[in-house]
Design a protein around this nucleic acid. Structure first.
Length: 702
DNA sequence: CAGCTATTCGTTTTT
DNA sequence: CGAATAGCTG
């Protein structure tokens, strides 16, 4: 399989795949079962459009849900194109597309171009503030409600109008004030990236025309996971041209909780009567036993578009279903099985994945794998850019780009501590509120000098001036910068040297932060070092980006706001076992998969089947989503699949007795309650067992 | 104001 | 059991 160049974009495709690639005259929906080659169809279609149909690569847009998917798509499409063509392609996530649109059209959305993007933590803090509570349940509910409203394109006014119960009314009120707060900060949150873009495209013909001209062909991946405003955005982008291909699988819809609706699949058939519907049913991934189990499982869901997956990869070995005593034993057993299987199957670590429902389940597994010195990578945890230390540094950068970003201001001025605390910020907040200004601007008012304690005032002013100075030297346009008064402090000696290199400015910023010293001061040696490493990694990444993109500091900072949450730090694919949530595993495949915690209450997650006293319909839908999640999990496996469940598990404080998941039965498998096949002889620890195994094979003990 | 200790809580799933 | 938070003390 070397770099043999495709003679045609449809080379080696099956009939359905080829049909999907060639379908060009009008909208096209590809229902692609798990492992049926949907990425292949999309990438080949991109190649086909550019190479054989003469599309300008810059006018071909492909949208995915994750950056990983976007990267892979770009790589694979790139293989069939010249470097120059591939470079022109626009392939990205919904969120990055929305951000890009908003940056360019900011003024039409009532935003300044340097608006900030709030991270989830900042957004939560605002809601917390507005609600004046720390009750997590209520906070989460309200935030979730607001998010769903945004994703359904419901405005605060509409939400207020249709609020039926007191809870909804409260949420709607918070929603309205929340929106106001964001506007004052010149900031948007995650959901806004898409919802504001969608509204803008629908409302503003000029903007719409501009972007429709940039999208002559649109491809959408994981279409079953789109929500209303994503759909509307796509619809606005394709316009009357109606040239698009949507690829999806209703059986893999697992984001209903985020506002996604499989109904979008049906909606497509209603909105586009000419829609060409193509089913991909041959699976190229899994052996027949695994596929049979998957088919049987998903057969318990109400089917929208019936599909029957088949493969010709042979029967394969039986699916193992193993009861365990508790999650500890489960993790240890899996670690041992991994070591054994690596020898037995002459496989690499990267051939294995351990999948689970919730992030917290990774902990025990990590420990067990570390004990046996098995290399692993965890995916689906919190991203690099969500780490405290990274957010700390980024808050300074955000503030550099947007002085009105109050959350960034608060974080930056209090981290590291510089003598500013609650009371100072409160006083400053009052001035800011009275004058209708951001905190940063309020500092420069005479009232601030009068009302703040001298010490605090000096410290605050110094901070603001440092940033103003840096901003000026970074070449930020005056219109966006602070009033001239802020600049007089440093005189103009440094001003002459226009736009210093971003790298130098970044170093200066980090030095001024004195972050390293603060880390080692505040924390123990170990954690401090880890965090500092991350900061250095971030800086290296920033500098690399600056050079690659030939950006000045402001451009860089704005770019960071874009990528920060969307682009993940690059793992260079080490040979390691993959630990992943089921959600994060979608789109991936592994020769050998372990699926752990297959219990009632875990895999159909508890709360999925009853909730409160609501009618059974909502509950049924939630169970169906859990079933699809299970389906996604087992269809990741190519050759072997091993399920395990715990008889008891410690939940919160106490240990609870667990039942095997109903899904095991539904797949036509047996969930033996008693110890079964291949258990370790009693009295022998997993480690001891591994050592015996290794000595048998001539390895060294651990 | 800042850091420490004691006390709560308790998590789906992600951009 | 572990982490995040509130309250207390220097």
């Amino acid at each position: 399989m070397s770099h043999h160049r495709l003679s045609s974009a449809t080379e080696g495709l099956n009939a359905a795949q080829r049909e999907a690639v060639l379908a060009l005259d009008g909208p096209c929906l590809v229902l692609a079962g798990a492992g049926s080659g949907k990425t292949r169809v999309i990438t080949r279609k991109i190649v086909y459009l550019v190479r054989e149909c003469g599309f300008d690569p810059r006018r071909v847009l492909a949208v995915t849900f994750t950056n990983k998917a976007a990267r892979e798509m770009l790589t694979r499409a790139g293989r069939g194109l010249h470097a120059g063509q591939a470079k022109g392609l626009t392939i990205g996530t919904f969120h990055s597309l929305g951000l890009r649109l908003l940056r360019e059209e900011a003024v039409h959305a009532g935003l300044k171009p340097a608006f900030s993007v709030l991270d989830a933590g900042d957004a939560l803090a605002i809601v917390q503030d507005l609600l004046a509570t720390t009750e997590r349940q209520r906070l989460r509910r309200v935030q979730q409600t607001i998010s769903l409203w945004k994703n359904a394109l419901v405005s605060p006014q509409e939400a207020l109008a249709q609020a039926a119960d007191p809870d909804a009314l409260e949420a709607a009120r918070v929603y309205a004030r929340y929106a106001g707060t964001l506007a004052a900060y010149q900031a948007v949150d995650f959901d806004d990236l898409i919802s504001v873009s969608a509204r803008l495209l629908e409302k503003n013909p000029e903007v719409r025309a501009r972007w429709q001209d940039r999208v002559h062909y649109l491809l959408v991946d994981e279409y079953q996971d789109t929500n209303l405003c994503q759909y509307r955005m796509l619809k606005a982008l394709t316009g009357v041209r109606e040239q698009f291909t949507a690829v999806g699988d209703d059986d893999q819809a697992i984001y209903a909780w985020r506002g996604a609706t499989v109904d979008n699949l049906m909606q497509l058939t209603r909105d586009y009567p000419d829609l060409k519907l193509i089913k991909l049913e041959q699976n190229y991934r899994s052996v027949e036993r695994i596929l049979a189990a998957a088919n049987r499982l998903i057969g318990h869901n109400a089917q929208v578009f019936g599909k029957t997956l088949w493969s010709d990869l042979g029967a394969g070995e039986p699916i193992a279903v193993t009861p365990m005593d508790n999650e500890q034993a489960e993790a240890e057993s899996i670690a041992v099985q991994l070591s054994a299987a690596r020898f037995d199957r002459r496989a690499e670590w990267r051939d294995f994945a351990v999948l689970y429902r919730g992030n917290h389940q990774a902990r025990v597994l990590e420990q067990a794998l570390r004990n046996l010195q098995i290399p692993y990578v965890v995916s689906g945890g919190q991203s690099f850019f969500d780490r405290t230390e990274v957010r700390d540094v980024l808050s300074w950068l955000r503030l550099l780009a947007n002085p009105d970003d109050d959350p960034a201001f608060i974080r930056a001025i209090t981290t590291p501590r510089r003598g500013i605390g609650q009371s100072t910020l409160q006083a400053l907040g009052q001035i800011a509120a009275r004058e209708g200004l951001s905190l940063c601007r309020a500092v420069l008012l005479p009232e601030a000098a009068a009302q703040l304690a001298p010490r605090q005032y000096q410290s605050t002013l110094g901070f603001v001036q440092f940033l103003a100075d840096l901003r000026r030297r970074a070449g930020v346009p005056v219109a966006d910068a602070l009033p001239q008064a802020a600049l007089d402090w440093h005189g103009d000696a440094a001003a002459v040297r226009a736009a210093q290199t971003p790298a130098a400015l970044l170093d200066e910023l980090l030095a001024e932060m004195a972050y390293e010293a603060w880390l080692f001061d505040t924390l123990d040696e170990g954690p401090a070092r880890r965090r500092w490493e991350n900061v250095l990694e971030l800086m290296a990444w920033l500098k690399r980006k600056a050079v690659e993109g030939r950006m000045d500091l402001l451009a860089l900072v704005q770019h960071v706001a874009l990528v920060s949450m969307l682009e993940r730090s690059e793992d260079d694919d080490p040979d390691a076992v993959r630990l992943s949530t089921l959600h994060a595993a979608k789109g991936l495949e592994f020769p050998h998969v372990f699926l752990v915690g297959v219990e009632e209450g875990m895999l159909p997650h508890r709360g999925a089947d009853d909730g409160d006293a609501e009618d059974g319909d909502a509950a049924r839908l939630r169970i169906e989503e859990e079933r699809r999640l299970m389906y996604v999990g087992i269809t990741r496996a190519r050759r072997s699949l091993s399920l395990s469940w715990c008889r008891r598990r410690r939940r919160a404080r106490e240990e609870v007795v667990c039942e095997p998941s109903r899904f095991i039965q539904e797949m036509g498998l047996q969930a033996q309650r008693d110890a079964c096949r291949d258990e370790a002889p009693s009295g022998i620890s997993p480690r001891e067992r591994l050592n015996r195994l290794k000595s048998l094979l001539g390895g060294s003990p651990v």
